[in-house]
Design a protein around this nucleic acid. Structure first.
Lengths: 195, 195
DNA sequence: GTTCAATGTTGACACTGTCATCTTTGCTCT
DNA sequence: AGAGCAAAGATGACAGTGTCAACATTGAAC
């Protein structure tokens, strides 16, 4: 632990925590320039390291992207958890859905890398936040009936996911009022009929 | 119009209808190998033509992909139109939604190039088939009230689009029964309350 | 203090999208 | 029929990419 270890991370042959640095730079690039504009070499460049050094921490580019996607999903989950916490129990379902769409529009790069990057299917437990949050809330609406809760959760997730996608892809105007209108008008449906 | 023009399209310097051939090969590749595995050079290779000849018919790769996406959307629209025609008037709404998801699962490449290829936002009128079909059907359910019909259409489109995406991306099992269950249980909601 | 495995670097390869330049072709006008 | 021309295709090159094998440097364990 020399002095240089403490006051400056520059010019060391060994980076210290290159994996974390690559991930941070990757997230930064994805957020600022978008998923399609990202290259393994540019991520390395941003950290000030040779392109192939990435391979000491990720087997290939896909793995790096999956790590980025995993973090993106964690952040989305966090945003939803906050929304659920801040809203009343009764309106939590809507709030979580709204948070989902709003996150997608506020962080298109993150949302895209998490959901539409080719060949990415994250299995990280924490990444299932959306599914589990919605399912838990749905359990309330379904009166504890597991099967119905799953279906309600799926319908809600599909709905907000589709809405987010269509807006991101310019198929539907990304109007905040439209989000509210769509979600609020659908809300009455989420519970569904007692049958 | 020599003999070779009629019996064989090979070995001619001028292809005749290269644009159409490139499009066909592109669609074939997208369908068989997926969107991410496609390159301008391979499309040209498949047609037996030099890579740069593509630029005589499309300004760049993006334009070629957009043309492919446009055709993919047309086919999706056709599948939905068929579904609408074949089902009773009352069940048309569900049938169209089901056709949408089924098309996505049956032709993942086509669906993906149409909806999640980076930077593609098709403006072709015929490509709005989904939106217009759903809107027209919704007009019935909404009793002719334009604004409400738009909202119902948007909700339905978002729902099936999200469901298709989540299944394509492996977030939700691509189970046909699950599709039916989700769509059928949601159907009663599509109409919404009279208010 | 040596040894060694972990971590970074260099140089190369095949591949990509795209450009400037050149060649071939079919059509039009006389 | 022949000349001229513009459309359509080919060549060669360039920078950029992901990835590999081989090499260099380091911190830490013994």
């Amino acid at each position: 632990m020399t002095v240089s270890t403490l006051n400056s991370a520059k010019r060391r042959y060994h980076h210290g925590d290159l994996r974390a640095a690559l991930l941070a730079e990757g997230l930064r690039l994805v957020e600022s320039a978008g998923v399609e504009a990202i290259s393994l070499r540019e991520v390395a460049r941003g950290v000030g390291v040779s392109p192939t050094s990435v391979y000491r921490h990720f087997p290939d580019k896909q793995a790096l992207m999956e790590a980025i996607a995993s973090e993106a999903l964690a952040r989305l989950g966090e945003a939803q958890a906050v929304a659920a916490r801040e809203s009343g129990q009764a309106k939590a379902f809507n709030a979580v859905g709204r948070a989902y769409v709003q996150f997608a529009l506020a962080h298109p790069g993150l949302f895209r890398v998490a959901y539409t990057y080719p060949g990415i299917a994250v299995r990280d437990p924490t990444s299932e936040a959306t599914a589990s949050i919605l399912r838990d809330l749905a359990l309330d609406l379904a009166g504890g009936e597991e099967a119905r809760a799953r279906l309600i959760g799926l319908r809600a997730w599909s709905f907000v996911h589709g809405l987010a996608m269509l807006m991101l892809d310019g198929r539907v105007p990304a109007d905040p009022k439209l989000i509210d209108a769509a979600i609020d008008s659908a809300a009455i449906d989420f519970g569904g009929p007692p049958g």
